[in-house]
Amino acid sequence: MTSRPTPFGSAGEHLLQQQLGTADRAHRFYDQQVRPCLTPQMRDFIGHQTMVFLATADSRGECDASFRAGPPGFVHVIDEHTLAYPEFRGNGVLASAGNITENPHLGMLFVDFTRDRIGLHVNGVARLYADTDLRALHPGLPTDVAPGRSPELWVHLSVEEAYIHCSKYIPHLTESPRPAPQDSATRPKDAQYFTGPRHAAHPSSH
């Protein structure tokens, strides 16, 4: 059976689906789960999330994965086609934002680890805005994302596709027992955590 063309998925995906015999299953997923914009349920889900994982690449296709976090709603749903999130002062590298200036394609993965154990992929085209410029276009942007701090930039995403990440392998992070937090007196500072002298392994690694 030959599946009909789909507007979703890359040429590489479709080639491997044909080679591995998964094309019909993949097309059912595209038809049933992939949307060209955010459904009301997706918009509500994003509004409750406190973290998101980011995927960007530069003009040569070299990739970078990153992470953002904030209070619920820090990734602001402007409408069914548009999201925005703030960029604050960090280490000065600006890896994700720098990639966006070369290659505007951005992948976002929201994961609920604590309640429903479900994920949401949102892919689209990103553009960087100064805080005042984006607020002039969208006055409803949140003002309390980080008390006492102002965004250096906003990332504005025009959504091209959104789809589920199923719960099968998402861990439930509130399960017991939890590892005890490391004593702050013995924990290396962030700047030395991976580059300084070796420190005691976490209990779970024994």
Rank of each mutant, 00 (worst) to 15 (best):
T22Y: 11
T22L: 15
T22M: 12
A23I: 13
A23P: 02
H27N: 15
R28D: 15
F29R: 10
D31R: 15
D31N: 15
Q32Y: 12
L38E: 03
P40R: 07
P40Y: 05
P40C: 05
Q41A: 15
M42R: 01
D44C: 09
F45Y: 15
F45E: 04
H48F: 14
M51V: 02
V52I: 10
L54Q: 00
A55T: 09
A57Y: 04
A57L: 10
S59A: 15
R60D: 11
G61Y: 09
E62D: 09
C63Q: 09
S66P: 05
S66F: 04
S66E: 03
R68V: 04
A69K: 08
P71Q: 12
P71D: 06
P72T: 12
P72S: 10
G73E: 02
F74L: 05
H76D: 02
I78K: 07
D79F: 06
D79G: 03
H81N: 14
T82P: 00
L83D: 02
L83G: 01
A84L: 06
A84E: 03
A84I: 00
A84F: 04
Y85Q: 00
P86S: 11
P86A: 05
P86I: 04
E87G: 11
E87H: 10
F88G: 04
F88K: 08
R89N: 11
R89V: 13
N91L: 00
N91W: 05
N91Q: 04
N91K: 10
G92T: 02
G92H: 10
V93W: 14
V93F: 11
A95D: 04
S96Q: 01
A97Q: 10
A97D: 02
G98A: 09
G98P: 08
N99V: 08
T101L: 14
E102M: 06
E102P: 03
P104C: 08
P104N: 12
H105P: 06
L106C: 08
L106P: 00
G107A: 08
G107W: 00
M108K: 02
M108T: 13
L109Q: 06
F110C: 07
